[in-house]
């Protein structure tokens, strides 16, 4: 097991290098730091001095990959590539374009993100499985058919509509919870409630339908027929045998997104004014803060790769047939 994990970590390194090179190319080769400075300072009426000053303040004044004016190792280390991209490997995110410490921001902002994303995932999972089991239990009846149609209808509604509609209905018309904002501690509950409900509801359509397919696939298998032949009740077959086996594909889908929960949801957080990483990213995109976007791209990839690793490990835990070596 340990050897497997070590090997997976080694596999992850070339992928992270690829991600790093890609973002480096996007942010520094396609567009020179001069261009970035010009975008920030305004395209017209900008002096070369102002551009130089902007670049020096943020450390973009160095050569891209090779510094011919330095000596020895500094030829490679005193460059934008080394300072801005290689440093990401040790999670040194540096400073954002407006001078804030990105690492500190991330550590502070991931908790509100998690406070929304985790309940959405768990409650969503529970509701989706419940609905899917119901449809599977009543399969090939009108309940099932209309359930699927309802799922497709729910799926076809834009996520933005759920948020805007939910905010309007619950906060503006009924005044149950505040429209947006955030607080620490127990006070946060009333701010978290609405985003969580909306997150769960918007996921019901796609989730239930997907799980229903998984359940139906399991129900068609031989062991289910055997269980029925033994004389087990349909409920027992469904809950005891089918649910247990269907958990394997469901788990795979869930575990892979677990680490990404820290990243939060872009739209949800910015609509509800939650100071998480999602709204952090959106703000950075709107302010064209390339340093933050670069950091988030890298962080997202790392978390995704961790998610893949966790998935493989979780396989061994739920499915004894799978052995990692």
């Amino acid at each position: 097991m340990m050897a497997y994990i070590a090997r997976r970590i080694l596999y992850a390194i070339p992928i992270l290098i690829g991600v790093n090179l890609l973002t480096f190319a996007l942010f520094f080769v396609v567009n020179k730091p001069d261009d970035m400075a010009r975008v920030h300072l305004g395209v017209k009426h900008v002096t070369p001095q102002a551009i130089e000053k902007w670049k020096t303040e943020r450390g973009y004044d160095k050569p891209l990959v090779f510094n011919s004016s330095a000596d020895g190792a500094a030829q490679f280390t005193d460059t934008i590539f080394f300072r801005k991209s290689v440093s990401l490997f040790v999670f040194d995110f540096g400073r954002s374009d407006d001078g804030r410490d990105i690492g500190l921001d991330i550590r502070e902002r991931m908790w509100p993100s998690l406070a929304i994303a985790l309940p959405v995932l768990l409650i969503g999972l529970l509701t989706n499985i419940t609905f899917a089991l119901l449809m599977a239990f009543f399969r090939a009846t009108y309940i099932d058919v209309w359930g699927v149609v309802l799922c497709v209808v729910l799926m076809s509604i834009s996520g933005l509509f759920y948020i805007i509609g939910g905010q309007y209905l619950i906060s503006k018309l009924l005044h149950i919870v505040p429209v947006s904002g955030y607080d620490t501690g127990l006070q946060a509950f009333k701010f978290i409630l609405l985003p969580v409900v909306i997150g769960v509801v918007s996921g019901i359509g796609a989730g239930s339908r997907w799980y229903r397919t998984i359940f139906l696939e399991e129900i068609g298998k031989d062991y289910v027929r055997t269980a029925r032949a033994k004389g087990l009740s349909e409920l027992r077959v469904l809950f005891y045998h089918v649910l247990k086996n269907a958990m394997i594909p469901i788990l795979t889908g869930v575990v892979v997104v677990l680490p990404l929960l820290f990243m939060g949801s872009l739209i949800m957080e910015s609509f509800f004014g939650i100071p998480g990483l999602g709204s952090y990213t959106i703000d950075a995109i709107n302010a064209q803060d390339f340093a933050v976007v670069r950091a988030m791209v890298f962080l997202g990839s790392v978390l995704y790769i961790i998610g893949l690793m966790l998935t493989d490990i979780s396989y061994t835990l739920v499915d004894p047939r799978v052995r990692l070596g």
Binding site: I15, V19, L22, T23, L26, F27, V30, N31, D35, M36, V39, L260, M263, L266, T281, I285, Q288, F290, V293, R294, M296, V297, G300, S301, Y304, I305
Partner: peptide, 18 residues
Amino acid sequence: SIPGVLLIAAAILSLQVY
């Protein structure tokens, strides 16, 4: 492995600068 929205954001930002 790069979150889709972020890759799109990065690319579109670069295009905007261009």
